[in-house]
């Protein structure tokens, strides 16, 4: 977080300031896009969902309670927008996923040696159920407390702990294999 007072920006945005909301968009765009990409595994879809999330938040900002943190409120809207888009995509005819994620789904045991760390992690993420992916990304990559993630996803905190545990186990295997390659 920068020195910008997020609560002040949110209060100004709630009073109708597009400029203040635009600053909030700039602050949170990278995280919102990562979270949407975690759910949708496609860059264009992730951007569409993140954009829809921001626009929905703009329309609903009058109902934002400034006593609560802004970031989890916004991220919950982005998660919902991404899940809505994923449901709509499922209804449509099957479309090709992002190359790496699609390859991992089709053949999880394909030659991982040719990929860099980011591609390997994306491939490993693609093999996890969506809830596990989200839990581990929100906890380890974005720094949300497990209780906050539970509220955001509408699941018990114990389920978040379990999802983080299982998600980490798969992803740490990738990190360890890369470390072994580097050590050789």
């Amino acid at each position: 977080m920068t020195g910008v007072d997020e609560t002040e920006l949110a209060a100004r945005a709630a009073s109708g300031s597009e400029e203040a909301f635009g600053e909030l968009v700039a602050l949170h765009a990278p995280m919102a896009r990562r979270v949407a990409y975690t759910i949708l595994e496609d860059q264009e879809d992730a951007d569409d969902a993140a954009q829809e999330g921001f626009l929905s938040a703009w329309q609903a900002i009058g109902r934002y309670d400034p006593k609560r943190a802004f970031r989890p409120w916004l991220m919950q809207i982005v998660v919902n927008a991404a899940r809505d888009l994923r449901r709509r995509r499922r209804v449509r005819a099957a479309e090709p996923l992002d190359n790496v994620a699609a390859a991992a789904r089709d053949d999880p045991a394909r030659d991982m040696g040719a990929m860099d760390l980011g591609e390997k992690l994306n491939a490993a993420l693609a093999t996890l159920p969506e809830r596990q992916r989200l839990a581990v990304v929100l906890f380890d990559a974005e720094g949300y407390p497990q209780a906050e993630i539970a509220k955001m996803l509408g699941i018990p905190e114990g389920t978040v702990k379990s999802d983080v545990f299982h998600g980490r186990r798969a992803l740490r295997k990738v990190l360890e294999s890369v470390k072994e390659e580097w050590d050789e």
């Binding site: 597009e18 909301f21 635009g22 968009v25 700039a26 765009a29 990278p30 896009r33 990562r34 990409y37 975690t38 860059q43 992730a46 951007d47 993140a50 954009q51 921001f54 626009l55 703009w58 760390l117 980011g118 591609e119 992690l121 994306n122 993420l125 581990v136 990304v137 380890d140 990559a141 974005e142 720094g143 980490r168 992803l171 740490r172 990190l175």
Partner: peptide, 25 residues
């Protein structure tokens, strides 16, 4: 793990995305 995931999931062209959203507000 968190840093590796952020690197893997970060999408390019944040500036263009922000401009697009701002234009649609």
């Amino acid at each position: 793990l968190g840093a590796a995931l952020r690197d893997a999931l970060t999408l390019p062209h944040d500036g263009a995305f922000v401009a697009r959203v701002r234009a649609r507000l």
